[in-house]
Amino acid sequence: MILVTGATGILGRVIVLELLKRGKKVRATKRESSNIDEVLESYRFYTDQADHFFCQIEWVNVDFQDLESLENALLGITDVYHCAAHVSFHPNDRRAMYHTNIEGTRRLLNACEGSTVQKFCFVSSTAVLDGVDEKGEVTEDSNYNPKLDHSPYARSKHFSEMEVWRAS
């Protein structure tokens, strides 16, 4: 079974749908306050079988502050797509982004230790990429330059990436 965090978000919900279309069993995380009806409505733009696919999702409330909540979500999981993140470019959201993006990723990775998880896919952001190649393009080979000024969101995603590197 596959776990997708951030399954009510823009990217997470599409990943869930694509996995379901491929016949995969999916457990999807959400906050207790999430409106999953919005996910169903968005599926209507992608498929004529929105209800069919939506009914196959095993929804689970997860609190990234609670290790037991994360461990329970990971029961029987072999693959994780970690899409959950706090996205904002407002400077006042810096603490929330650091807490959610860095600490939440660290807690999820710690919960994966000793679990049945075999693969972990982390969704980052192009906001962390700096510099251009010889063609003047930014690519995934572009490095994060800590000497440049970055938004709090970019820093939070960079340090989240570092948590994934640490765990790997």
Rank of each mutant, 00 (worst) to 15 (best):
G136R: 12
S124R: 04
W59H: 15
E71C: 11
S160C: 10
M97A: 06
V16E: 07
I36S: 07
I77F: 06
D63Y: 15
P91M: 02
F54N: 05
S142Q: 09
N143A: 15
S168E: 14
L3Y: 06
K119H: 14
Y46C: 05
V16A: 11
N61E: 06
M97D: 03
Q49K: 14
F53Y: 15
R31A: 14
F64V: 08
G76I: 12
T78W: 11
R95F: 14
L3I: 11
L109W: 09
C55A: 15
K21L: 04
V80Y: 11
S125K: 04
L70P: 01
L108M: 08
T100N: 09
D37K: 09
T8R: 08
Y144S: 00
A127V: 00
L17Q: 02
T47F: 12
R27E: 07
D149N: 10
L108T: 02
H158L: 04
K24W: 10
Y81A: 02
G9P: 08
E41K: 15
A50M: 07
G6C: 07
A28F: 02
A167F: 15
M162E: 06
F53H: 12
K24D: 09
G131S: 07
E38N: 11
T126F: 12
I77W: 02
T47G: 12
K157A: 00
D48S: 08
R22D: 13
V117C: 10
L108D: 01
G104P: 13
G23M: 11
D149I: 07
I57D: 03
V138A: 07
Y153R: 13
D37F: 05
E140A: 01
F122N: 05
A96V: 12
Q65M: 13
D130M: 05
L17R: 01
D63P: 00
C55R: 15
P152L: 03
I102H: 11
N101W: 00
T139G: 13
S160R: 03
A154R: 08
H52C: 11
S160K: 05
G6S: 06
R155L: 08
G114S: 05
A84T: 05
V123Q: 01
R95V: 14
T100Y: 03
G76F: 11
S151G: 04
I10W: 03
G131A: 02
E161M: 12
I57V: 10
E140M: 03
F159T: 02
E134I: 02
L17C: 01
V26P: 00
H150N: 07
R27N: 11
V26Q: 10
E163Y: 05
A167N: 06
E140H: 06
I2N: 13
R95K: 12
L67D: 10
K24F: 12
S124F: 08
A84G: 09
T116I: 03
S151Q: 10
R107L: 10
L148I: 02
K119N: 13
H86K: 14
L20S: 05
V132A: 12
I77S: 02
K24N: 14
T126Y: 10
F53G: 10
V39W: 03
H82C: 07
E32T: 15
A7T: 01
K21F: 06
C112R: 05
G6E: 01
